[in-house]
Nucleic acid binder design. Structure first.
Lengths: 144, 144
DNA sequence: TATTGTTATACTCTATAACTATA
DNA sequence: TATAGTTATAGAGTATAACAATA
């Protein structure tokens, strides 16, 4: 005979699980779409962040993306090796880099955005614009 | 000059990121709450599933939790070593196990539910019941 | 003292493939 | 042939601590 774990908790545990499944589904779909472009999701996130906020310090980008700084180092190493981003020394702080996209990186970011637009349309297109706004508003209240 | 990655996509990428952050936040909070009970989130998920659906085959539980079957093996190994769950041979299928909680496992599941109730109250309590229902309904349409 | 970035390390999660024993 | 479970392995994500250079 199962013990009574309670119903409100049941719903909350199920909600947590649902969030995990939706997260994983989106991440997988994004990963599949980016593979032909030789990009992983971690690369795409930094490309988009740099396109919008670059040049910036590694620290700034890793903060924007909730990335650990050591993960940021690895990703920038990979992007530099691929010729998509570059590290220059920052003007007024000799500890920091001013990292930015290369022209090729900018082109790759645009191509990736094309591809991922189809993916997100397939995923989030099941919701109307108003529903998406609702979802964002609700989730925002669950974020720190 | 940043290229134009477009605004609707911006929102969708941000939505994906928001889902990731909320997922990670919840997982971390759950992990911290379970640590005093010597449980990881993976153990808790199986304890709850067994409490509700046990006895069952490993396959049934791993399907319910979207767990890989090899991950399920490892988790059951750990739960058995901790004395919280047990494998018995299934009656009508000699390939399968009938896995279930031990009495101690049932007690631990109840204790974990106590603790996690506070966590989920802290997390999801920011939303009203109606809002939580809304959120679940919206997320359910994004799941496969 | 604190911050930027690097390196090393380790743990978790996820996925895959090869294997056994049954069905 | 297909399924339940096991084992081994590898990649990705995440986190920490120690360190050098600079603020």
């Amino acid at each position: 005979m199962p013990s009574e774990l309670g119903d409100p908790r049941t719903d909350d545990v199920a909600l947590g699980h649902l969030i995990a499944v939706v997260h994983q589904t989106g991440r997988d779909a994004l990963g599949r779409a980016l593979r032909p472009l030789n990009l992983e999701t971690r690369h795409f996130a930094v490309l988009v962040a740099l396109d919008r906020h670059g040049p910036a310090s590694q620290r700034r980008i890793s903060d924007l993306l909730d990335l650990d700084k050591s993960a940021m180092v690895r990703i920038m190493d990979e992007l530099e090796r691929m010729g998509l981003a570059a590290r220059a020394r920052a003007e007024h702080d000799r500890r920091a880099y001013a990292i930015d996209l290369t022209p090729e990186g900018r082109a790759r970011a645009a191509a990736a955005a094309e591809v991922t637009a189809e993916v997100t349309a397939g995923l989030y297109g099941r919701l109307s614009g108003a529903e998406r706004d609702q979802l964002v508003a609700l989730l925002a209240r669950l974020a720190p």
